[in-house]
Design a binder for these strands. Structure first.
Lengths: 109, 109
DNA sequence: GAAATACGCAACCATTTTGTTGCGCATTAC
DNA sequence: GTAATGCGCAACAAAATGGTTGCGTATTTC
């Protein structure tokens, strides 16, 4: 049953990715290293609290996982949600390609 | 030079996908058929104007294209933006996989 | 030409989102 | 033990979002 934690609906994941700040957080965390909020908000224009809020949104979307270690909250990237989003996009793409294929064979006959 | 129309930044595309109504519009339009606003808003709970606004957002994100034909505005799916989004996700995934790979070989040596 | 269809625009409203600041608490460093 | 660090919570403000309604205009249809 892995870690339970169902992957949220695709639109939630996309919404979480649909913000420059959050997208850059994903990009940074996708190297596998977990980072504290302080570190993550260090080279941002934003406040620590603002970054915290963004991280909460990402957590709701299943994109990251948080674990308290000592006095800091370490956030870790979680690939499942992103895989789900990717699968969704591929599904739509496939439908599009199929439609193109049908059109083509219709024209050619 | 194709049709110019540069693909917007990934976060804009993701934001456009990050809404259930818009996501279902994408799903419907990805069959290649262009549809009028009236048709698209027919089996929705929403007003025509609400759907119009969503379609505008999608157009800004490069997900659809609009063309006036007679008295109706036909919206057509446009795969480029979606491909860009997909490419972005794959980039992040690759970075994640690489990180895992490095970790694994480090542990194993 | 009159009625019906399809739409655009603008104003407006409620809610959500994004961000801030202030404060208090736990944990670590010295 | 005192100071510094890292964080959470709550209150607040501003802006963006998602939606509605009313009205005017162009295009078909009959």
């Amino acid at each position: 049953m892995s870690t339970a934690e169902p992957v949220p609906a695709p639109d939630v994941v996309f919404a979480a990715l649909g913000d420059p700040t959050r997208l850059s957080l994903v990009a940074r965390l996708s190297d596998g290293q977990s980072r504290s909020i302080a570190v993550l908000s260090a080279d941002t224009e934003l406040t620590r609290q603002a970054v915290t809020k963004h991280l909460r949104v990402m957590e709701e979307a299943g994109l990251v996982e948080v674990a308290r270690v000592g006095r800091e909250s370490r956030y870790t990237f979680r690939p499942v949600a992103l895989d789900a989003a990717r699968a969704y996009l591929e599904m739509v793409s496939r439908q599009w390609d199929d439609a193109l294929g049908r059109l083509k064979s219709f024209v050619e006959e």
